[in-house]
């Protein structure tokens, strides 16, 4: 392949990526605009709150408790190499609150919620339900997208907060039951060590990840192709995009919060 052809191919790939980013940005802006302007659909909003928030609690709780427990074991055994076993409460707390809590909750939400939103909306598109909404004078962005994204923006930070607490509890349980830590000292060390900034960063990340997860599900659902293959492709692409964007956003937000 000639260098010019290679350059042309590279250019096409960059242009395609930029066009996709542009479409996604316009979709996100459109979503925000519909979230702020009436009519609002409270029934759909509350149903989304229940689905994204309440029904995700078991999976978030289980993920957090096992991660907290494993983290305590890892820090204990790693810390033993330089006589630093005592830092388990502090590192579990900071690791869960700053990083693992929001990221794991975000990824679990991408797996559970993004996929279900994308599959549901894509199926609605394939079966002409979205066309039916339009003919019934109901804007799909207002009825399908805005309530889901708004619900995710509210519930995912709360899920992250719950995940943080359960993750720390997992570490606490392992440390006090298996590693011989004193329960009261563990709690005191955890509370004393955490700063407000750690908690705020966790919640802000949760909000951002929730917005990303729901927006990706809606975007790929609305853009879905025809038939079962279209629904499958939309679901797969939505989860991939949400997971990558969550990890990228985590890097950016961590940089903003902790390198200043």
């Amino acid at each position: 392949m000639s260098p010019i052809a290679l350059l042309a191919q590279l250019g096409r790939a960059v242009l395609t990526a930029l066009a996709a980013l542009g479409r996604l940005s316009l979709f996100a802006a459109d979503t925000l605009s519909h979230m702020l302007r009436p009519p609002f659909y409270p029934r759909e909003f509350f149903a989304s709150l229940l689905n994204i928030g309440w029904l995700s609690l078991p999976v978030v709780g289980l993920t957090a408790i096992f991660t907290g427990g494993a983290l305590a074991l890892q820090i204990y055994s790693g810390g033993a190499r330089f006589n630093a076993e005592a830092v388990v409460p502090q590192i579990v707390a900071i690791g869960i609150v700053r990083e693992l809590g929001p990221v794991l909750v975000g990824l679990m939400i991408a797996a559970r919620v993004t996929s279900s939103i994308a599959a549901e909306i894509a199926t609605m598109k394939v079966t002409e339900q979205i066309d039916a909404l339009v003919t019934l004078s109901t804007h799909p962005m207002k009825y399908l997208v805005a309530p889901r994204v708004a619900a995710a923006l509210i519930t995912v930070p709360l899920l992250v907060a719950v995940g943080d607490i359960i993750g720390i509890a997992g570490g606490y349980t392992v440390a006090t039951q298996n590693l011989g830590f004193n329960a009261a000292a563990y709690i005191k060390n955890t509370v004393d060590f955490l700063e407000l900034k750690d908690v705020v960063s966790s919640l802000v990340k949760g909000c951002a990840f929730g917005g990303i997860a729901a927006t990706m599900g809606c975007y790929y659902g609305i853009q879905s192709g025809r038939g079962a293959q279209g629904v499958g492709a939309a679901t797969k692409s939505s989860v991939e995009a949400a997971a990558i964007l969550i990890l990228a956003a985590n890097f950016v937000l961590t940089g903003i919060f902790f390198s200043l």
Partner: peptide, 13 residues
């Protein structure tokens, strides 16, 4: 759109 009603091929319920 308020002037229209539509029956879709698959029902689209």
């Amino acid at each position: 759109l308020a002037k229209f009603g539509m029956l879709f091929q698959g029902g689209a319920l």
